[in-house]
Simulated scan of single mutants.
Amino acid sequence: MATVSPSWNYTLHLPRDPRAPGIARGTLRLILAAHDLGELTPTAELVAGELLANSHCHTKGPYSLRVLSPHPGRLRVAVWDTDPRVPPAFSADVDKDAVPPPDTEGGRGLHLVRACADEVGVSVLRELGASKGGKLLWADCGGGVAW
């Protein structure tokens, strides 16, 4: 008899601390191991690490890691932060295949995310009521069922 895995999600709220991205990557590894998704760990960890580093380096407020799997074998890694500005690598009009020039100091991390993920996106969140606004950068990994 076949069983269906229910969807799941985790959110880790991170303090403004240089150790936070490493703690988040360790938590991600534990989550994936617990859900028998170890084969997605290298890609998910790279994606999470780059998104977390981007939030830590380029924003001033708190940030969060969100990991969800609405379908078996699929994973969405997302990072929320309080800054609503969308990084150039995630803007709608960016050439997905463009490689950052070799003499630039930045821009490679999010290019790596685009290259490793099946799909990427951004949601800009308006500040309403208790919401802190900001943005949510996300990347899908795992192939299989489309969102």
Score class of each variant (00 low, 15 high):
Y63T: 03
V79G: 07
D95Q: 09
L52P: 13
T41E: 13
G38C: 06
I31F: 10
V77T: 01
A98R: 04
E127W: 13
K96V: 12
A53Y: 04
R74W: 06
P87V: 11
L137K: 06
D95V: 05
C57Y: 15
K96R: 15
K96F: 15
C57L: 15
P6K: 13
N54I: 00
A20R: 10
P102L: 04
G22Y: 13
L51D: 01
H56G: 14
P88S: 07
F90I: 15
G106L: 12
A44I: 06
S64F: 08
P15H: 04
P87G: 05
A2S: 15
A98K: 08
K132M: 11
L68F: 08
K60A: 14
C116G: 08
D36M: 00
T3G: 15
K96E: 11
A130C: 11
L75R: 00
R114N: 08
P87I: 10
G142W: 01
G106N: 12
G109Q: 03
R16L: 04
W80R: 07
G49Q: 02
W138T: 10
L52S: 02
T59S: 11
I31D: 07
H56I: 13
T104A: 06
N9V: 09
W80F: 05
R108M: 07
G109K: 01
C141M: 07
L52D: 00
L112S: 02
V99T: 00
A117D: 06
L136A: 09
V99S: 00
L68Q: 15
T11M: 14
D83P: 08
G107P: 05
G129S: 12
R76P: 00
A24Q: 06
P72W: 02
G109C: 04
G38V: 11
V145Y: 05
V122D: 06
